[in-house]
Design a binder for these strands. Structure first.
Lengths: 309, 309
DNA sequence: CTGAAAGCGCTAACAG
DNA sequence: CTGTTAGCGCTTTCAG
């Protein structure tokens, strides 16, 4: 009997209808929402997540955040409407309330959020440690005028810190502790593909910093480019960024960076999600430890370690 | 009345269930299948597609190809099972038969396939023109020993050419026409993230080529890297690749490439798909014209234009 | 072990 | 304009 059914399945090339199945039970699909599939860091997360799902019954479904509706989390709703069995998302702008509401419907794991919530799980890079690593590296090289090019954080929620905010705050803290509070310079840049000329000028205005800490990988590459266009080498201005990629490791670029291990984050997020789907009810908050990849883009400043302003 | 319903919708935060809706009509979702979300070219396609869907009712759903099952097109089935209203895919290994079968169920637009089919639409880069542009550029600079690092094409279907195969064939043709058939060198590289040492050695074995045409962007970057590690500059070995990115334009890299305009391809694919959904029944086959971005990675060979072997 | 039936949430068709 | 009904393909339950 079973045989005959299987034969018929084969013959008619029958495939079960996921939509119909969804109305009664599980869809065996995991929704993944990411803000920007062009950023290396997010594709790394995706690779880690896809790898972790490889030998499970679950299939990843990726939805890019629609930019105009980012804040209200409409993309998350679309996933939920599609009856996925769980969601992994990077949605820095969505309020914790909305997420808790969502988490009541299905398991949710958020990446890169420092929310102290019991409703959903989180996986974050250790931004305190990451900033410590890179700031100690720069200050240790003898830099004093260290500027910070921060990604426009767009105040996520009052009282809750985004990774960008943590980095900024720690940057200021390290400058302060090194007695360099008056040397701190923070320039903000909108989260677009471009690095506007205006921002570069502000960043490099006299007294020119000898080192720049950049909040996002692609932006750091653009800063390197802007510097080389001005004939400035890493001897004059060191650059450190976030997130490691093949490009950063390329000898012609050789960008020092804090490696957040996006792939591992994606993998861990899926791990937590599957645990939730499997029945875990108490919240889990994981931290992934970053490492520093010191490369040629950071060097001791030309004036020497004790150089005056 | 309508008001009261809307009020209730608001109050209960009701959301229609896509799965239920799918059982009767449209889901207003478009499935996009891509082999490798880490490759720039594919994320560009995605960006173009997402932009084209921005102000329609349709939502993109992205599914990464599961590598082991790539050939049988299982990822495509999963999309179909999910009742998407149409599919845009880059699936070089799936047979035309399978695709025709799929296209009978729902509108399908394939990217980068040269299949002469009436069942589904295609959008391809003009690989003949692209190869002409870059080969004329290299030969025009005076190169004679031009090697080709080809991406392992994995015989898609006998008789039907993948973009890689077209490029290879045209490369050979251009070498032949320039009387350089005996100088042609083709090295194949598996489609992984790496560029194995073995491949580099084969590529640069004496008599060392003065120029290399590389079949995929990321691979071209690795070739540049391998060359610089060997102390070889573009004066000794020119490199030309495919697909333009921020990195290629970076002054420290400055990679000459054939720009396939992935974003436009994604956009066009969505355009065709929406037409199909809107009722068009005859097949459309679009070609997107590439342009050459000549940069510093290609220069005249050192021996001079008429240099002997 | 096999068969029949209810119902998931929606849309389309039809009745009042 | 409002209300009712059938049925999409599946899973679960209950009967034979």
């Amino acid at each position: 009997m079973r045989k005959r059914v299987n034969a018929a399945i084969e013959e008619l090339s029958y495939r079960p209808n996921v939509a119909a199945r969804a109305m009664r039970g599980a869809t065996f699909s995991i929704g993944i929402e990411l803000p920007h599939l062009g950023y290396h860091f997010f594709t790394r997360i995706l690779q880690g997540a896809a790898a972790a799902l490889e030998d499970t019954r679950y299939q990843p479904i990726v939805v890019p955040t629609a930019t105009e509706t980012e804040r209200d989390g409409r993309a998350l709703d679309m996933l939920a409407d599609r009856q996925v069995d769980g969601i992994v998302a990077v949605s820095p702008l969505v309020s914790p309330d909305r997420l808790e509401q969502l988490a009541a419907r299905m398991p949710v794991v958020m990446l890169g959020r420092h929310d102290p919530t019991a409703a959903y799980d989180t996986v974050t890079g250790d931004d305190v440690e990451g900033t410590r690593l890179v700031m100690e590296h720069l200050l240790g090289l003898g830099h004093r005028r260290v500027a910070h090019l921060a990604q426009e954080g767009q105040a996520a929620m009052p009282g809750i810190s985004s990774p960008q905010e943590v980095r900024l705050e720690r940057y200021l803290e390290h400058m302060h502790r090194a007695g360099l509070a008056d040397q701190a310079r923070v320039v903000r840049c909108e989260d677009t593909e471009d690095l506007p000329e205006r921002v570069v000028q502000e960043l490099l205005a006299p007294p020119r910093p000898t080192a720049v800490l950049v909040g996002r990988h692609e932006l750091a590459l653009k800063v390197l480019q802007a510097l080389s266009e001005r004939g400035l080498s890493s001897a004059e201005v060191s650059v450190a960024g976030y997130d490691d990629t093949d490009i950063a490791a390329h000898p012609a670029i050789s960008l020092t960076c804090v490696d957040q291990e996006g792939a591992r984050m994606g993998e861990r997020a899926i791990g937590l999600l599957l645990e939730r789907i499997g029945g875990r009810t108490e919240a889990a908050h994981l931290t992934v430890e970053p490492t520093l990849k010191a490369r040629a883009s950071t060097r001791p400043p030309e004036e020497g370690p004790a150089g005056a302003v």
